[in-house]
Amino acid sequence: MSPGRTGLDSAADDWLIAKAKEGTPDAYEELVRRHRDRIYRIALRMVGNPHDAEDVAQDVVLTLWTALTGFSGDSMFTTWLYRIVVNRCLNLITRRRQHEPLEDPSLATAPGADMQAVARGKARAALDAVTALPPDLRAAVVLVDVEQMRYAEVATILNVSEATVRGRLARGRRTLLGTLREWT
């Protein structure tokens, strides 16, 4: 039985990668089309605002095109892709900290006020709480608790042990819970 057409399908990914490496640009475009929502979603939840998330996504699409020839196929394409996305986000967060000591204006709105906005308030408040986490804890929380990935895959993406993922997750969740408790 075939996986969903827009869902994850590693056999189809591998086929498209082979075609892209043979020089079929359309194959690369299709590969990006299949994964772009997830690329953008992870970026949005790591960096906290659409503008930076789009920057990251654009950067990933360009990087991937040149890096694809180096993809050995030892790991799943998605694992390799998400590692690129997370690393780009971490780079951006580091740069932002160096150059912009003040918080992003879009995050400066009072989280308490967000909690009261019925339509989008709760998810937005959670996003604010997630993006307030230190970057290494944030990556673990985004990938496991928001993106619902398995510990083993997250460990490979972050290039750390599964025990480290669990440790970061526990610390991240406790911090999140504290933040959400203060806001309610």
């Binding site: 475009e29 929502d37 996504a57 654009q58 996003l127």
Partner: peptide
């Protein structure tokens, strides 16, 4: 109760904006 906003965040559907992806793919094309 406290974790509910996180569950909402995880369930939220996010669609990538067309513009920037198309822009970069056009550049490559």
């Amino acid at each position: 109760r406290l974790w509910a906003p996180m569950a909402d965040l995880a369930a939220e559907e996010v669609v990538a904006p067309e513009g920037r992806f198309d822009q970069v793919l056009r550049r490559l094309r």
